[in-house]
Every structure is written in C-alpha cells, then in structure tokens.
Simulated scan of single mutants.
Amino acid sequence: MKLKKIPYDLTVCKLSDSVQIDLSKDFYFIGKTDEELSLVCKTEDVPSILLERDDGWKGFRIQGVLDFSLIGILSKLSGILAENNIGIFAVSTFNTDYILVKSENFEKAMLVLEKAGYEIEV
C-alpha cells in the first residue's frame, strides 16, 4: 500500500461558526456536529477568528480510492503508530483516509510505516 506525504504544515482548529472558513483554499477538512465545528487546514490558511488551535501537524494520505468494503486499513496504520508511541488525528474523505501526526513525530512515523512494508511517496 502506498502513502503520500502532504507537503505542508497543518493546524487543527475549533471555530464558533463557518463564516471565517475560506472555501476557496485547496486543502481543508470541516467537521460539524451538534457540539462543535472543527477545521483542519494549512497553517498559513488558519482563520483569524477562532476558539482554539493546535499547530504543528504533518500528514499523509493513503493513495488510491478505498472501497467502503475494505476493512481495517486505518486500524492497521494507527496500530503500528500506537505501538511506536505516535498519536494520530485521522480524517477521511469519500475516497481515502488521511492521518496527521505531530511534526516532531512525522519522520519517525514515516520510518516505522516504511519498515512495516508501506511505500512512502513524496
């Protein structure tokens, strides 16, 4: 399985409303529930008005389109990282999964995943 590095720094944010989100940007995730509104975006694109932010994330995506019938892909990746004391923040799109780790753990994460047989694409 191939993993592709995301080439920019990311930030996880908590917002009070969606007005500040610039939907013209090329990379962001929005999560909204009855309890909160979260945004993951490039650090350079963080809105000026927000409730909280957590900088210092790097990420990678699982390459290709993952069929919904596939089971355990995210579980296996997160298990390998957990065994190596690397916490994650995972988000998914219709096609695939993205895993974010803190910047200071990113190179270690790539090394342990490569050692486990994953191909890392830059």
Rank of each mutant, 00 (worst) to 15 (best):
1 M>R: 02
1 M>A: 09
2 K>C: 00
5 K>G: 10
7 P>I: 01
9 D>A: 12
12 V>L: 14
12 V>N: 07
13 C>H: 00
18 S>Q: 14
20 Q>D: 11
21 I>V: 13
22 D>K: 03
24 S>C: 06
26 D>L: 10
29 F>D: 02
30 I>F: 06
30 I>Y: 05
32 K>T: 11
33 T>C: 11
34 D>R: 12
36 E>H: 13
40 V>H: 01
41 C>R: 04
44 E>P: 03
45 D>F: 13
45 D>V: 14
46 V>W: 00
47 P>R: 04
50 L>N: 09
51 L>E: 15
54 D>C: 12
54 D>E: 15
55 D>T: 15
56 G>I: 09
59 G>M: 09
61 R>P: 01
62 I>N: 02
67 D>I: 01
67 D>T: 08
69 S>Y: 06
77 L>Y: 05
77 L>D: 05
81 L>A: 02
82 A>R: 13
86 I>E: 00
89 F>L: 04
90 A>E: 05
93 T>A: 03
95 N>E: 15
96 T>D: 10
98 Y>M: 02
100 L>R: 07
100 L>S: 07
100 L>H: 08
101 V>E: 02
105 N>F: 15
106 F>A: 02
109 A>T: 05
110 M>N: 11
113 L>F: 08
115 K>V: 13
116 A>E: 11
120 I>C: 12
121 E>H: 13
122 V>T: 14
